[in-house]
Write a protein that binds this DNA or RNA. Structure first.
Lengths: 195, 195
DNA sequence: GTCTATACAGGGATAGAC
DNA sequence: GTCTATCCCTGTATAGAC
C-alpha cells in the first residue's frame, strides 16, 4: 500500500486475483472499481492492466479457474457403489464450497455480468459438474438403492441445498465441518429415498 | 418513453419499483443507473427523486415490501398436523418464489448493498420467515412424524433447496408447477425422514 | 512492472422552470 | 410531477516517464 516503485510480477498477479475475488464477492462486480482492487493489492490502477485485458477478463478468469479447480478436485469412482459415491460428493461439495466461499458466491451471483461468450464457457463447465452428480443418482436409481421422481430436478435441488451452507456458515460457529457434513448427508440420503 | 410533460403519480410510483426490481435483478444494483431506470419508466432521471430519497432507499423499499408480501401471503395452521403444514410450506414457497423470482433473487443477492441499518431490518424479516418453517419441523419432530439431526440446519437446507428452483425454472419448460411441487415435496418428505 | 497524469464517459443527485 | 440543465465525482482505460 505504501510502496512507490518496483517490480514483483510473481506475487502481484496472484494477489490481484485474490483481492478481486474477495472484493467482487463482498460488494458485487459492478460495485468494485479497478482503483479499489489496485489499492487492496498495493499498486496503482494502471498497473492492473499489465495482468489483465480489462475488468471483464478478470471476472472471467476468476470464474473459469474456480470451475476448473472444482472439476479437478472432485474424484468420483464410477465402480464404487452409488451411495458411497453420493456421500463422497456431499462431503466434497460442502468442504470445497466452504473452502472457496468467495468463488462459489461469485459463480452464482456474477454470471449475469459475463459477456455472452464468457457466460457460455462457464455454463459449460458448470454443466459438466452437475452431470457428475446426475450420473451418481442415475446409477443409484438403476441399482435400486435410490428413489427419486426426477433425477434432473433432484440434481439441481441437491446442489442448491448443499451450496446453501455458504449462506449461513461462520468459522468458529456452533458446528464444525464434520458435523455439518453428517447432517447434510443424512438429509441427502433421505431426499433420495435411500433410507 | 416519448412523453414530455404531465403528471401521473398513481402509475409512475409503482412503475418505478417494477422497473427497478426488474433491472436490479438482471444486472445488479450497482450496475443499474438511475437514468436507466428512468428511461425504462419513461421519465427523466430527476423525476425519480419525487418518489424516493435515493437509490439506496429504492433498494430497501423493494426488499422490505417483498419480505412483507412473503410473510403476509403465507398462512400456517399450527393446529394442523406437521406433515400437512410442511407440504403446504413447500408448495407455497416454490409458487411464491416463481411468481416473484426477481424479488427473490434480489433478496439473496443485494443484501450486501444495503446500509447496515437497512440490512438489519431485512434480516429480521427473513428470520421471521425462517422461524416459521423451523416451528413446523420442531412440531413434526415432537410429534414423531419427522426425524432430523439438527432442526436449524434442516431449516436452512430446505429453504436453500426450494429457493433453488428460481435458478433453473423457465416458463413453458419441461415441467409445470404442480409437477415441480410434487417432486420437491417428495424430496423434502424424504429429507425430514417422514417416509 | 509500476508510476503519474489524464482522456473521456457515465454515475448520483439537485435547481429552477413549467 | 416532470422537464432540462448542470454540478461534481468516480469510473475504465491508456500514454509515457522511470
Amino acid at each position: 500500500m505504501a510502496r512507490t516503485q518496483g517490480s514483483r510480477a510473481e506475487i502481484t498477479g496472484p494477489l490481484i486475483r485474490d483481492e478481486a475475488r474477495r472484493l467482487f464477492a463482498r460488494q458485487g462486480f459492478a460495485a468494485v472499481s479497478m482503483r479499489q482492487i489496485a489499492a487492496a493489492v498495493g499498486v496503482q490502477a494502471g498497473a492492473l492492466y499489465a495482468y489483465t485485458d480489462d475488468k471483464q477478463a478478470l471476472l472471467h478468469e476468476l470464474l473459469q479457474s474456480h470451475m476448473q479447480d472444482l472439476l479437478g478436485a472432485w474424484r468420483d469412482d464410477p465402480a464404487a457403489d452409488p451411495l458411497t459415491r453420493l456421500e463422497a460428493f456431499v462431503r466434497f461439495h460442502i468442504g470445497f464450497s466452504l473452502d472457496h466461499s468467495d468463488a462459489v458466491f461469485l459463480s452464482y451471483m456474477e454470471l449475469r455480468n459475463l459477456t455472452p461468450e464468457n457466460f457460455q464457457d462457464i455454463a459449460e463447465l458448470r454443466g459438466r459438474y452437475e452431470d457428475g452428480l446426475h450420473r451418481i443418482l442415475c446409477d443409484g436409481i438403476e441399482a435400486g438403492v435410490m428413489r427419486v421422481a426426477d433425477s434432473r430436478l433432484a440434481t439441481m435441488a441437491l446442489i442448491a441445498m448443499l451450496t446453501g451452507v455458504t449462506n449461513w456458515y461462520r468459522e468458529g460457529g456452533r458446528l464444525d465441518r464434520r458435523r455439518i457434513g453428517d447432517v447434510y448427508w443424512a438429509l441427502t440420503r433421505g431426499a433420495v429415498g435411500a433410507d
